[in-house]
């Protein structure tokens, strides 16, 4: 069984985001970039499925600039077998990413596509669902538990009000939620080994899909800032203040 894991290069989640003064976007010059945390969870899950003997091959794919190679190497160091970089300077929208991933899936014919539910930059929470619709494969999003047997994945999902379990016939698209697992740190020997694992680079144009932007950015601004209020000395003082603020 083969798993395809799309991994995205994003701003490290610890980095403080600064909006550019010309309102053209977020300042990404010289800031630390990392693998999207939800994608780390997806890689980890694929590696665990391989360790259990359910999965035989893990292919990681990233779409973006040349530096995405570092993110793919991280996936390889965690246990993925092969990497594919679809190189482009363009910032693709979820629909375009989904179309590219569909083309990659057409070539790779995976049984499962395991990916993040959301990228922490765009926060769209959309690509997996779009990919599932385009491929006409079933989807199981926001997974907190995945079990694969007999051509079906049983997926427990984090939904409004609790949990839902679905059975999806493979091939399927599964997106990860935070509680699926805790990703491992790659060990030094594995980081060294990852340098020798195969990594193919291809140009976006070779995918033969229309990735033209549908959205144009009018501006990017900072949200209104909240400022610190006052410190109170006791619970009684707190209640008095909340009463005069009219919220009790």
């Amino acid at each position: 069984m083969k798993v395809l894991v799309p991994v995205k290069r994003v701003l490290d989640y610890n980095v403080k985001v600064r909006v550019k003064t010309d309102q053209s976007g977020v300042d990404l010059a010289n800031v630390k970039m990392a693998m999207n945390p939800f994608d780390e969870i997806a890689v980890e899950e694929a590696v665990r499925l391989k360790e259990k003997g359910v999965v035989t091959e893990i292919v990681a794919v990233s779409i973006g600039v040349a530096q995405c190679e570092a993110i793919l190497r991280t996936a390889l160091a965690m246990g993925a077998d092969r990497g594919i970089l679809v190189q482009t300077e363009d910032d693709l929208e979820p629909l375009a990413v989904a179309k590219v991933l569909k083309a990659v899936a057409g070539e790779e014919t995976p049984d499962v596509i395991l990916m993040g539910k959301q990228a922490i930059d765009g926060d769209n929470n959309a690509t997996g669902q779009m990919l599932s619709a385009l491929l006409d494969w079933p989807q199981a999003t926001f997974a907190s538990k995945v079990e694969i047997s007999g051509g079906e994945a049983l997926v427990t999902r984090e939904v409004d009000g609790g949990l839902q379990t679905l059975g999806v016939t493979l091939p399927a698209v599964i997106t990860t939620d935070l509680r699926l697992n805790e990703p491992r740190y790659a060990s030094l020997p594995n980081i060294m080994k990852a340098k020798k694992k195969p990594l193919d680079t291809k140009a976006l144009a070779d995918c033969g899909v229309d990735t033209a932007a549908r959205l144009s950015v009018v501006k990017v601004t900072e949200p209104p800032k909240r400022s610190a209020g006052i410190k109170v000395a006791s619970a009684d003082e707190l209640v008095a203040n909340l009463k005069s603020a009219g919220v009790l």
């Binding site: 701003l11 403080k16 985001v17 909006v19 977020v26 922490i120 930059d121 765009g122 926060d123 549908r214 959205l215 144009s216 950015v217 009018v218 501006k219 990017v220 601004t221 900072e222 949200p223």
Partner: peptide, 16 residues
């Protein structure tokens, strides 16, 4: 709509 955990607000215009 908010992006980057609400640290930025993006105004987008669609051609669709």
């Amino acid at each position: 709509h908010p992006i980057y955990a609400g640290n930025a607000l993006e105004t987008v215009k669609t051609s669709d």
